[in-house]
Computed example of a mutant assay.
Amino acid sequence: MNQELYRQFEMTRGFFLRSISKITPDLVDIQPQGYNNTIHWHIGHVLTVTEQFLFGKSFALPGNYVELFGNGSKPADWQGDVPSIEELIPQLEEQLLRIKEIPEEVLEQKLEKPFIGLETFRELANMSLFHESNHLGQLHSMELLLERTQH
Protein backbone atom coordinates (compact mmCIF):
# COMPACT_ATOMS: atom_id res chain seq x y z
CA MET A 1 0.00 0.00 0.00
CA ASN A 2 1.07 3.57 -0.55
CA GLN A 3 3.40 4.50 2.33
CA GLU A 4 1.65 7.79 3.10
CA LEU A 5 -1.75 6.13 3.26
CA TYR A 6 -0.35 3.29 5.35
CA ARG A 7 1.14 5.79 7.83
CA GLN A 8 -2.32 7.33 8.16
CA PHE A 9 -3.80 3.91 8.91
CA GLU A 10 -1.01 3.14 11.36
CA MET A 11 -1.47 6.48 13.15
CA THR A 12 -5.27 6.30 13.27
CA ARG A 13 -5.37 2.66 14.36
CA GLY A 14 -2.60 3.36 16.88
CA PHE A 15 -4.68 6.14 18.47
CA PHE A 16 -7.72 3.87 18.42
CA LEU A 17 -5.90 0.98 20.12
CA ARG A 18 -4.25 3.24 22.73
CA SER A 19 -7.63 4.75 23.54
CA ILE A 20 -9.15 1.31 24.03
CA SER A 21 -6.31 0.29 26.35
CA LYS A 22 -7.05 3.24 28.66
CA ILE A 23 -10.77 2.52 29.06
CA THR A 24 -11.67 0.73 32.26
CA PRO A 25 -13.37 -2.62 31.52
CA ASP A 26 -16.43 -1.78 33.61
CA LEU A 27 -17.43 0.96 31.14
CA VAL A 28 -17.26 -0.86 27.79
CA ASP A 29 -20.73 -2.40 27.88
CA ILE A 30 -22.69 0.46 29.41
CA GLN A 31 -24.98 2.24 26.95
CA PRO A 32 -25.37 5.84 28.10
CA GLN A 33 -28.78 7.45 27.86
CA GLY A 34 -29.18 9.09 24.47
CA TYR A 35 -26.65 6.79 22.75
CA ASN A 36 -27.54 3.88 20.46
CA ASN A 37 -24.45 1.84 21.22
CA THR A 38 -21.65 1.03 23.65
CA ILE A 39 -17.88 1.41 23.53
CA HIS A 40 -17.71 -2.35 22.91
CA TRP A 41 -19.92 -1.94 19.85
CA HIS A 42 -17.82 0.94 18.47
CA ILE A 43 -14.67 -1.19 18.70
CA GLY A 44 -16.30 -4.10 16.85
CA HIS A 45 -17.92 -1.73 14.37
CA VAL A 46 -14.62 -0.13 13.34
CA LEU A 47 -13.08 -3.57 12.84
CA THR A 48 -16.05 -4.88 10.86
CA VAL A 49 -16.67 -1.87 8.61
CA THR A 50 -12.96 -1.51 7.83
CA GLU A 51 -12.98 -5.18 6.83
CA GLN A 52 -16.02 -4.63 4.62
CA PHE A 53 -14.54 -1.53 2.97
CA LEU A 54 -11.03 -2.82 2.37
CA PHE A 55 -11.40 -6.58 2.01
CA GLY A 56 -15.01 -6.97 0.84
CA LYS A 57 -15.26 -10.36 -0.81
CA SER A 58 -12.24 -11.70 1.11
CA PHE A 59 -13.83 -10.82 4.49
CA ALA A 60 -11.59 -12.53 7.08
CA LEU A 61 -13.66 -12.06 10.25
CA PRO A 62 -16.27 -14.42 11.71
CA GLY A 63 -19.55 -14.23 9.79
CA ASN A 64 -21.58 -13.00 12.75
CA TYR A 65 -19.55 -9.76 13.00
CA VAL A 66 -21.68 -8.02 10.36
CA GLU A 67 -24.81 -8.92 12.34
CA LEU A 68 -23.23 -7.79 15.63
CA PHE A 69 -21.31 -4.71 14.50
CA GLY A 70 -22.44 -3.76 10.98
CA ASN A 71 -24.37 -0.64 10.05
CA GLY A 72 -27.72 -0.52 11.81
CA SER A 73 -26.74 -3.06 14.46
CA LYS A 74 -26.91 -2.41 18.19
CA PRO A 75 -25.99 -4.25 21.39
CA ALA A 76 -29.65 -4.47 22.41
CA ASP A 77 -30.09 -7.00 19.57
CA TRP A 78 -26.99 -9.09 20.37
CA GLN A 79 -27.55 -12.80 20.72
CA GLY A 80 -25.18 -15.72 20.87
CA ASP A 81 -21.41 -15.47 20.90
CA VAL A 82 -20.24 -11.85 21.13
CA PRO A 83 -16.46 -11.41 20.99
CA SER A 84 -14.90 -9.67 23.97
CA ILE A 85 -12.76 -6.55 23.73
CA GLU A 86 -9.78 -8.83 24.44
CA GLU A 87 -10.67 -10.80 21.29
CA LEU A 88 -11.26 -7.71 19.15
CA ILE A 89 -7.95 -5.98 19.96
CA PRO A 90 -5.65 -8.56 18.30
CA GLN A 91 -8.03 -8.65 15.33
CA LEU A 92 -7.64 -4.87 14.98
CA GLU A 93 -3.85 -5.25 15.14
CA GLU A 94 -3.82 -8.09 12.61
CA GLN A 95 -6.13 -6.16 10.29
CA LEU A 96 -3.63 -3.29 10.22
CA LEU A 97 -0.92 -5.71 9.05
CA ARG A 98 -3.21 -6.93 6.25
CA ILE A 99 -3.96 -3.34 5.25
CA LYS A 100 -0.23 -2.73 4.81
CA GLU A 101 -0.08 -5.65 2.36
CA ILE A 102 -2.63 -4.15 -0.04
CA PRO A 103 -0.67 -3.53 -3.26
CA GLU A 104 -0.18 0.04 -4.49
CA GLU A 105 -1.83 -0.69 -7.85
CA VAL A 106 -5.05 -1.72 -6.09
CA LEU A 107 -5.48 1.84 -4.80
CA GLU A 108 -6.14 3.19 -8.29
CA GLN A 109 -8.66 0.52 -9.21
CA LYS A 110 -12.19 1.65 -9.90
CA LEU A 111 -14.84 0.20 -7.60
CA GLU A 112 -17.27 -2.19 -9.27
CA LYS A 113 -20.04 0.12 -8.15
CA PRO A 114 -19.53 3.66 -6.76
CA PHE A 115 -20.18 3.88 -3.03
CA ILE A 116 -21.56 7.16 -1.61
CA GLY A 117 -19.86 9.01 -4.46
CA LEU A 118 -16.52 7.22 -4.08
CA GLU A 119 -15.19 5.68 -7.27
CA THR A 120 -11.70 4.29 -6.52
CA PHE A 121 -10.30 1.97 -3.90
CA ARG A 122 -8.02 4.82 -2.68
CA GLU A 123 -11.10 6.95 -2.04
CA LEU A 124 -12.70 4.07 -0.16
CA ALA A 125 -9.51 3.59 1.91
CA ASN A 126 -9.59 7.28 2.82
CA MET A 127 -13.26 6.94 3.76
CA SER A 128 -12.28 4.07 6.02
CA LEU A 129 -9.80 6.36 7.80
CA PHE A 130 -12.47 9.05 8.19
CA HIS A 131 -14.91 6.44 9.53
CA GLU A 132 -12.43 5.15 12.11
CA SER A 133 -11.55 8.68 13.24
CA ASN A 134 -15.23 9.51 13.62
CA HIS A 135 -15.79 6.48 15.84
CA LEU A 136 -12.66 7.30 17.82
CA GLY A 137 -14.33 10.61 18.67
CA GLN A 138 -17.52 8.80 19.68
CA LEU A 139 -15.50 6.44 21.84
CA HIS A 140 -13.82 9.39 23.62
CA SER A 141 -17.14 11.13 24.12
CA MET A 142 -18.76 8.05 25.64
CA GLU A 143 -15.76 7.33 27.84
CA LEU A 144 -15.80 10.87 29.29
CA LEU A 145 -19.53 10.77 29.89
CA LEU A 146 -19.38 7.35 31.53
CA GLU A 147 -16.41 8.25 33.73
CA ARG A 148 -18.29 11.29 35.02
CA THR A 149 -21.59 9.53 35.59
CA GLN A 150 -20.62 5.98 36.63
CA HIS A 151 -17.81 6.59 39.14
Results as ranks from 00 to 15, higher is better:
E4A: 13
L5V: 04
R7H: 07
F9S: 04
F15T: 00
I20D: 00
I20M: 03
S21L: 12
K22Y: 05
K22N: 11
P25W: 14
D26Y: 06
V28P: 01
D29Q: 11
I30F: 10
I30Y: 09
I30A: 02
Q31A: 10
P32V: 08
P32H: 02
Q33C: 05
G34F: 05
N36G: 15
N36S: 15
N36D: 15
N37G: 07
N37H: 15
I39R: 04
H40I: 07
W41N: 01
H45K: 06
V46L: 08
V46C: 05
V49M: 07
E51C: 09
G56V: 08
G56R: 11
F59Y: 15
F59S: 06
A60D: 15
L61C: 14
L61M: 12
P62E: 04
G63V: 15
G63R: 14
N64L: 06
N64S: 10
V66R: 08
E67H: 08
E67N: 10
L68G: 03
G70F: 07
G70P: 06
N71K: 12
S73L: 13
S73V: 09
K74L: 13
P75W: 04
A76G: 11
D77N: 12
W78L: 05
D81T: 05
D81V: 04
V82I: 13
S84P: 03
I85K: 08
E86V: 11
E86D: 12
E87H: 09
I89A: 08
I89Y: 01
I89P: 01
Q91H: 12
Q91V: 13
L92K: 09
E94W: 00
L97Y: 06
I99F: 13
E101V: 13
P103S: 10
P103C: 05
E104W: 09
Q109D: 11
K110Q: 15
K113M: 07
F115A: 04
I116N: 12
G117H: 10
G117D: 12
L118H: 13
L118G: 12
E119D: 05
T120I: 06
F121A: 00
E123M: 02
A125M: 12
N126L: 07
H131D: 03
S133A: 10
S133W: 01
H135W: 01
H135I: 10
G137W: 00
G137P: 02
L139H: 02
S141D: 08
M142N: 05
E143Y: 15
L144A: 12
L145C: 01
L146S: 03
L146R: 06
E147R: 09
E147Q: 13
R148S: 15
Q150F: 04
H151R: 10
